[in-house]
């Protein structure tokens, strides 16, 4: 059993236990006994099945090769593994860290079995013009992303040899700055229509990458600053005083307000708590956790105390029971 490394007192222990039992009772009714471990037999109820990931054939019997949950879709039977590395699908939004700048490409660590590749040609140039990439562009690659930069991108395709190609052909993709990255288990993130969230009340951008990398950062309005620059260029040369005022503006922009920083930390801590408890991470649950901490007027650091873990577990149990009743 995966235990929480928390120092709980006796009452907290009992409460947490109770909340977890409630969660178990809610979910056990929906899918009884579909959990398998390595080398378990998977019962087959019909002929002509298709065996999917996580299964193998042994003398006519279907056995699991990973621990997880058996999923049956029409004739396809596969095992959805829980704690495993990220399995990419085309179109997923992922966040990665640049670990290498190579010829015409960046290598990104995205919690996959290999490093993902972001080609220079599959990314919008900062000037926004569509053209062939020249040798000069290649030399200037470090001005776009350097090592250890965080990049948000989309999965383009996975090659036959298992390597992964990314693309960033949109203004919403690109370098991430002024915020923090959290890593959670990828099975806690569900694929959805929307992975970019702008939380207006906090002034924060939240990107929930499918690979379990979550970005919480200050909201940046439009990333087409370059367009504005172009307009300036076309006008008459800027005078000295103008430049000075621009510098001040830029300084203002680069400095994040204290309140925003606190909001970033609060949301990040909410995600930490949820991932430690192993709950599904969605925008609604994160906001609910943040609201819970706000309503209790907890300090940001107190969110990582054991009491808050218990409270979150209890409220999550309540929430799931309620949503179950509605259905």
């Amino acid at each position: 059993m995966r235990n929480l490394q928390l120092s709980l007192n006796q009452t907290q222990k009992v409460r947490l236990q109770k909340a977890l039992e409630k969660l178990e009772s809610v979910s056990s009714k929906s899918n009884p006994n579909s959990c398998v471990t390595v080398a378990d037999n998977i019962p087959i109820y019909e002929d002509g099945i298709l065996k999917g990931h996580g299964t193998s054939d042994r003398k006519g019997e279907l056995v699991a090769t990973v621990c997880g949950v058996v999923e049956r879709i029409n004739k396809l039977i596969y095992v959805r593994s829980l704690r495993a590395r990220y399995k990419p699908e085309t179109g997923d939004i992922v966040i990665g860290r640049v670990i290498e700048v190579a010829q015409k490409r960046w290598k990104l660590e995205i919690n996959f079995t290999q490093d993902a590749v972001l080609m220079l040609s599959s990314m919008n140039l900062p000037d926004g013009i569509q053209r062939r990439r020249t040798a000069v562009d290649e030399l200037n690659m470090r001005s776009i992303f350097t090592e250890n930069d965080l990049v948000c991108a989309e999965v383009r395709s996975s090659q036959g040899d298992g390597s992964l190609q990314l693309q960033a052909r949109n203004q919403k993709y690109g370098k991430l700055e002024r915020g923090q990255l959290l890593t959670v288990d990828p099975y806690l993130v569900k694929r959805r229509k929307q992975h970019f969230h702008h939380l207006e009340q906090y002034g924060i951008d939240l990107i929930i990458g499918c690979n379990g990398f979550i970005w919480v950062g200050e909201h940046i309005d439009a990333r087409d600053k370059m367009l504005v620059d172009q307009v300036n260029d076309s006008e008459q040369p800027i005078t000295k005083s103008d430049q000075n005022s621009m510098d001040l503006d830029e300084q203002d922009e680069t400095c994040t307000l204290l309140e925003t920083r606190q909001n970033i930390c609060r949301i990040a801590n909410a995600i930490r708590v949820l991932s430690m408890l192993g709950f599904n991470i969605t925008l609604e649950v994160i906001l609910e956790t943040v609201n819970l901490s706000n309503s209790l007027t907890l300090d940001i650091h107190e969110m990582l105390g054991s009491e808050f873990y218990v409270l979150v577990a209890e409220s999550e149990a309540e929430r799931r029971i309620l949503s179950k009743r509605k259905r």
């Binding site: 059993m1 959990c35 378990d40 829980l82 806690l188 192993g278 599904n280």
Partner: peptide, 18 residues
């Protein structure tokens, strides 16, 4: 070991929820 793994998988799945 099977028992431990089964218990662990079950717990992860039910905590995750839908």
């Amino acid at each position: 070991i099977k028992e431990v793994l089964q218990e662990n998988t079950k717990q992860l799945e039910c905590r995750r929820g839908l």
